[in-house]
Amino acid sequence: MKVNLKIWRQAGPDAPGKLVDYSVENIDPSQSFLEMLDTLNEQLVKSGQEPVAFESDCREGICGNCGLVINGIAHGSKGGCTTCEIRMRQYNDGDTITVEPFRAKAFTLIKDLVVNRSAFDRIMSKGGYVAMNAGSAQDANLQPIHQDAAEAAMDAAACIGCGACVAACPNASASLFVGAKVSQYTWLPQGQVERSTRALKMVKQMDSEGFGDCSNHAECEAVCPKEISIANISRMRREFTKALFTR
């Protein structure tokens, strides 16, 4: 099969960018979307042009490295998967596909489709952990945790930090990312000690990174490859407000 592509090309953060037309032929339906882009790049390199810069690593939907906005939807229209998990089978011969980078002020563009998501790391450094030095832990089974709580924590912990929530949000808000982390630890006894400070500090860092506020569009949940619920945002708000009064 063959597809026509409109791909955002931008040489650097301050360079002007535009959509450029390409087409790729002889696509195997089993090819992944990124492999289709690989094929395009190989064509470009061989004809002496610069390949399209995009990122990926695990190519199986767990590292959170890949991330493109495909026809206006972060990680494509299938839902519940990352860009690298999309197969070309999903498209029809002759389709035109527009590919854009994750756009947000907090995710500065590096080149073409590559953006800088280090804001997430800075948010995590403000409390996305349980402060526990190596070597000081008690036996793991001393503290039973209700299975439901462990499962709820796991639901929130499934976040791969890809940033699609920000990309998809009409406000470019990072609430789902932060919400998931804050609520993960509220479910676990280990998370209790730092519960208030975590919520306060992570939200503060989020605000200072230039993400937008949340308008509850829930578009983030729809594009989240791990289908993390926006109820985590709700929970974060409870945590934060409680912390404001109890800290």
Binding site: K6, W8, G17, L19, V69, N71, G72, I73, A74, S77, G79, T98, E100, R103, A104, K105, A106, L109, A168, P170, N171, A172, S173, G210, F211, G212, D213, C214, S215, N216, H217, A218, E219, E221, A222, V223, E227, S229, I230
Partner: peptide
């Protein structure tokens, strides 16, 4: 909130779409 939205995404998408599924994005919310 609306103002933060403009600042947080200075460059707009060329294509806009609705993801469907769990999303509650609609003309009403927008």
């Amino acid at each position: 909130v609306q103002r933060s939205k403009k600042k947080a995404r200075p460059s707009r998408y060329e294509v806009n779409a609705y993801a469907g599924g769990a999303s509650k994005k609609s003309i009403h919310s927008l």
